[in-house]
Design a protein around this nucleic acid. Sequence first.
RNA 1: AGGGGAGUCGCCAAGUGGUAAGGCAUCGGAUUUUGAUUCCGACAUUCGCAGGUUCGAUCCCUGCCUCCCCUGCCA
Length: 560
Amino acid sequence: MDNSQNQTPATTNFIKNIIENDLQTKRHTTIITRFPPEPNGYLHIGHAKSICLNFGLANTFNGTCNLRFDDTNPEKETEEYIQSIMNDVSWLGFKWHGEVKYASDYFDKLYECAEYLISQSRAYVCDLSFDEMKLTRGTLVNVGTNSPYRNRNADENLLLFRKMRDGEFEDGTKTLRLKIDMSSPNINMRDPIIYRIKKIHHIRTADKWCIYPMYDFTHCISDALENITHSCCTLEFADHRLLYDWIIHHLVNDGIISHTPRQIEFSRLELQYTVTSKRKLNELVVNNLVSGWDDPRMPTISGMRRRGYPKDGIHLFINRCGVSKSPNIMDLAVLESSVREVLEGNAKRLMAVLNPLKITLTNFDETIGSKKSPFHSKHENMGERMVELTREIYIEQDDFMETPIAKWQRLSLGGEVRLRHSYIIKCDEIIKDDNGNIIQLNCSIDKNTLGRNPEDRKVKGVIHWVSVTKSIPCIVRLYDRLFTKAEPDHHTSDFKQLINPNSLDEVNAYIEPAVNTLHPEEVVQFERLGYFVADRYDFNLTNKTYIFNKTVGLRDVWKN
RNA sequence: AGGGGAGUCGCCAAGUGGUAAGGCAUCGGAUUUUGAUUCCGACAUUCGCAGGUUCGAUCCCUGCCUCCCCUGCCA
């Protein structure tokens, strides 16, 4: 499955070190991790890091990894998101252990834990309004003040909490809070809310509940119930670990739960020229700035898939990113080179011309032959096809220059060039329109150069081409980075102002007939141009709709 | 009376009291019917800054600086 570790030397990271130590010291005999998304949006490259980390850790240490939906806030969660998340995780090549888990599976147990904490006077029902709560919480530098409801006795609290559960109070009128310390320098410890009233239909529990547990209460207990050994999350939860440990400690101590999971934080993955916040991604979709969550320009997993990024390329990229606690913004080049590295050995080669310039081969006659060429010069098992030359062909406009600049290796007036997989030709004449624009070239074939090089001279340039009569029209969508700034999140202006107006260009192109051997989602290399994927939805052989998305260009050290 | 996290090459990132791995990028050069690939070679006397301990410090100690996160009944 994941063969990308062959390409990058196995590096270690602090989480692996922790696990190795836990295994060596017999603190654990096996490890269990989990990937716990909230189903409130599509997964993006940042999630890919978490997925590769959690499932990857389980794989390398022979443990298991659960997929658990953190569905504690019914306001924003949908079945569509659940499906897309399962699809994305599977597409990345990972298998979760057993059934998919849901935090909502534990609502009964969570409720039981809450009642227990109430009985121990460790939790109380609070009547403070949202605004009063905000006022009494204190600030970053000032301590909070105790709620006037903090000292309600256990019996009263239990009664009130049950009434909350039974729907006797309106949304927002009461909460259940932990009784910890309003003067704690860590705001998460200032009597955090663990249950709130929301009379909202839940995608899984329907209308069974009208109170829902908060993240801090749910997550640690869910981890404990699933016997998670290492609960890896991003750095912004580091402040919550104290609370995580507090809840687990009291529940384990009193025998209410039996396992103590450990939370470990790592830094999130950021990528140049894009944004990775569900809110901003959603804004792009809602405002039709992209075609959807899976627009090839989106950093979503489904977007990258549609862009033609192979899953192994994403794995390789994530491996190259590493895992640490330092803030980072990955260079786009790391992602692109990872994608190229995987595609280099897997993609068939084909010729396509995106900006055609017509050439007439003036000495073309019946003696001109053709030859079969492999789809990949290093992997003959990928098959071959006939590359048939005709009297009229198209080459790329960029591959011709009337008076060549220094080191020019392509075609020029009076110059020679090799037609890829075919003959060497020479440009004899340029035909221009009334405005002086080049509209056609007349060239002659050196008939002795099919499959062999001339002995009297060296022709260095090689250009791709297609036959005017044999080639097939297709549509190619050219994608560029979505934003004009490397760090669109780090500017004060609205990030939408930084959108690259030229991130999508659609051109009518010509491709050789072997396009008929492709299937949707297959990535091919258009020789000398880059990698292109047959769109998974719009490329259709039977309808003869040939639509490609540019995945990534070839590395290009040629500067002109 | 703030708390938490982080600072090692342009971007990532190992590392350790014993003299700075690796990847991407970059720059040379070779091969090439893709200016691709492949292959060779170059690329931190230095680890945020300043002191201290030590035979020896990126690593230990002290002070300072910079950046990120936290004041949802979101996760």
